[in-house]
Each structure stands twice: as C-alpha cells, then as structure tokens.
Amino acid sequence: MAWNEIVASVMILLGCFLALTGSLGMLRMPDFYTRLHPAGKNDSLGSVLVLSGLAFLVTHPVENWLVLAKLALIIVFLIITAPTATHAITKAAWLDGLQPWQRPGDKEGVYKSWEREDV
C-alpha cells in the first residue's frame, strides 16, 4: 500500500468514527438543544476528514489540482454552512419557545448571564 493510501484510510476512518459518534450522540442526548452539539460539531469535522482523506487519493496526472481545488471548496463551504445551519435550527426552536433540558436537582437553573468588563 502506498503512503497516500494509508494516510487517506486513516483520515476516512477517523471521519467515519466521528460521524458514528455524532449519530450516537443524537440518540443519547436528552433534548433538542443538547442533540445539536454532536450533530453540529462531529458531523462537520467528520465530513472534512473524509473529504481531506479523499484528497490524498487523487492521483490523476492532469486533472489532479482541479479535483483538489473542488474538494477544498467543498470543505470551505461546509465549514461556513454547518455552524450557520446549526444556528438557524437552534434559533427556530428557541423562537418557538422550546425550553432547554436541565439536570434534575440543578438549583441554579438553566439561565445564567454575566457582565463583561471589556464591552
């Protein structure tokens, strides 16, 4: 196996693991807001890892850099859109009045605020 295939395999496997973690997190978390954390974070880095892994498998002599540029573009757009989409559905749920889950017995309550000095 060539070195680039090994690197690619490791990255793709890591990406798959992160995607699996994201799905498992979706099932384990107690409510909508907490579910967004594994969904929004692990899936984005997971896809970035899979795409970067694919970039190492590009060996076509002529169209090599074109394919690489396309993969890079997909990564850039994913990095920008994934958190934006997460924010959009979070805000939708928030405006709809969905209350965040809190651990039973947490006396402080879910809502906290603090004042910054440097603002």
Binding site: T21, P30, Y33, H37, N42, Q102, E108, Y111, K112, R116
Partner: peptide, 20 residues
Amino acid sequence: VVKIVWTPGLKIAPSVIAMP
C-alpha cells in the same frame, strides 16, 4: 463531544447564557 458521548452517565449540565 466524543468523550461525552462515549462515556456512560452522560456528564452534561446544560445552561443558557446571555452574553453582551
């Protein structure tokens, strides 16, 4: 997040913060 998801007991204590 990977650590939280794979550890039993789900060590989370969610909070909502308003931040200037």
